[in-house]
Amino acid sequence: MMPTRRKERLIALIILATLLFTPPLLLVTERLGPGALTLSVFLAWAAVIALAAWLLEGGRRE
């Protein structure tokens, strides 16, 4: 069973990831210049994975 706090944090992370991966926010980076969109997607992706790892692995020791 996952502790409720971790559950809530994970759901928040999923919402954040969805926002980062979809147009309204994506279009902002698109304006920064060629390549910015691809780069920003990669950065957001890496950040989401890092957060998930921290959340899911760190939580085990809680």
Partner: peptide
């Protein structure tokens, strides 16, 4: 690959 990333985050549920 972003789609499965989101789906995988849901995997614990």
């Amino acid at each position: 690959y972003l789609g499965p990333t989101l789906a995988m985050l849901l995997a614990p549920f």
